[in-house]
Design a protein around this nucleic acid. Sequence first.
DNA 1: GCATTTTACGCAAACGATACCGGTATAAAT
DNA 2: ATTTATACCGGTATCGTTTGCGTAAAATGC
Lengths: 347, 347
Amino acid sequence: MKFEAITIKDIAKALGLSTSTVSRALRDSYEISPETKQKVLLYAKENNYRPNPIALSLKEKRSSSIGVLVCEIANSFFSQAINGIESVAQEKGYNVIIAQSKEDFEKEISSLQYLASRSVDGIIFSVSAETSDFSHVQQLYGRGMNMVSFDRVVDFPDIHKVSVDNYKAAYEATTHFIKNGFSNIACIANAAYLSITKERVEGYTAALRDHNIKLDPNNILYCLHGGLIYEEVAEIMSHAMNSKQKPDAILACSDKITTNVMRYCQQQNIAIPKQLGLVGFSNLDLTDLLAPSLTVVSQPAYEMGRIAAELLIKQIESKRPIKEFEDVVLATELHQRASSEKKKAKL
Amino acid sequence: MKFEAITIKDIAKALGLSTSTVSRALRDSYEISPETKQKVLLYAKENNYRPNPIALSLKEKRSSSIGVLVCEIANSFFSQAINGIESVAQEKGYNVIIAQSKEDFEKEISSLQYLASRSVDGIIFSVSAETSDFSHVQQLYGRGMNMVSFDRVVDFPDIHKVSVDNYKAAYEATTHFIKNGFSNIACIANAAYLSITKERVEGYTAALRDHNIKLDPNNILYCLHGGLIYEEVAEIMSHAMNSKQKPDAILACSDKITTNVMRYCQQQNIAIPKQLGLVGFSNLDLTDLLAPSLTVVSQPAYEMGRIAAELLIKQIESKRPIKEFEDVVLATELHQRASSEKKKAKL
DNA sequence: GCATTTTACGCAAACGATACCGGTATAAAT
DNA sequence: ATTTATACCGGTATCGTTTGCGTAAAATGC
């Protein structure tokens, strides 16, 4: 079955006009008489005429659609970000085409290829946990695709970037632990290559250093697959908790890692925060209802999405190539709750 | 800036052939010599040629894209469902364009219009909480748009539908309450017009009837805006909990209502399940970690998305109009946890 | 050796909309 | 009466791709 819409030709035929006249009448050109205009406009309205966007796209060489590549939609951070992207896109007459990498490098490449081959006008992307080599991105970008790097940003300079101050976020979270009497704090981070991982780990180590706590390298733990599957996190936790120098607190550096750490603790009957303090990065809106209520670092995901979309669309609609690139860095929020409550007084 | 891709014309010019020859060589037509074919294929591969989907769309009168209309992306049920839709779409070479109604009737109409005007080949939709009149859907469907009704299904017969057995889900949840000694069970449902609301309320009332509990009409409460905003739920809860016959248990009939009821109870220091039992519809994957762990009815959202996408694509690709319409009804799962624990023995 | 078939390719139309380049009719100016 | 201006509208190329038709050259048949 096909959905047949009325075309400019149908109007022309019905009214005994040429397609060019109809086109001009619809676009309110000065060289069409008011009577003809009205006839055309009326007929168009009555028959619910909509210009065929595909024909427009072919002619204008633009599709008025933007691609979004994230690792997973069903993740509170990304779904909120997509929400923000979608709101701006809708305002500006673009539609949003989504693709998921599932934290898989190959799927990321094919997804980008897919979006590019679908003639999107631009792409907002967050790289997968497996991605250490950005040449596929650089190649696409170099060939003229409009792109905005988002959340997990790439390391080359001439591109718009939207992210949060991960260094500060981790620094504050770690400091919060220290102030509450935790000292042997482990950091479970995402894959080591990611910008967000590097920055968060740096913030974590800096906070320890600034408070004269010696860093135990074994306390920095990486999830190669972004903690997407429970087993990955469980194994890391199990290893950490069975070591001699077992940590008294965990800084979980992603949404998925956070919930999986909690799940592990519940299954192993590890009391939070008594036996183990926990602060997690999370954008879920019910972390305050968890047992115990969870201290979280939350990101302005919706706002990030909006800004990324605005930058991208501005770039798409710019007449000349962009020379000045934005590096937008937003602030996170630390919500202090029960999962990191005071262990003992310290300073 | 524009992303310029190589076209069939470029290949033709480079190789001194006509576009038709190149086109046929790429499609492996028998009327092209093996040598020419190889030359073309090689050149195409080297220059990373991809057929322009927009030109194809214009010619074939199909866009190989499907629209998805949900009330909100940032909702675990819908993001999981979109996940399922996206996986099937990817397999079959379609892309997914998303639109949100935000539970708003006007936005639902404009979103559908938007999707239709973007030349999607079909639409999977779940109506908004405000939607009681389906004529806009019926009109679009009647004009030949392929559509699959999903989750909150419409009431006309000749359309594919994918939903869950809401009657049974609510019946089981209510029975579970009764078996655990709760008797004055309130049901906070979505907007009254929605299929899911009607079915869930019916299941609820049937369970009461079958267990010889008299139904108090005041115990059926509706959220006109789907419980999207906290205040809506808080007001309903406040009214219920301050009534003479205040309920000893709540059946929360949607994701948002469930979390907002929990939030209300926490703020008002209402102990669950001691003062108030709670069972909620929810697709969050960490309801077991809430305080108290939450008894939930979960839906196979991913699977629903997959099935809906498969039905839609089958319909799109069908040569003749579909005569037989599927009404797929999947089972929900009741996860019994602490929030609805035994109050006193009964039976 | 001529007629016929086969092979291999080019030409042009079509999809829907736009825009440049025209053209015609009426009216006004010379 | 002829030119000129103005108002209004049509023809056609274009975007990238496919496809029916046409046709030259090569291959085959007798």
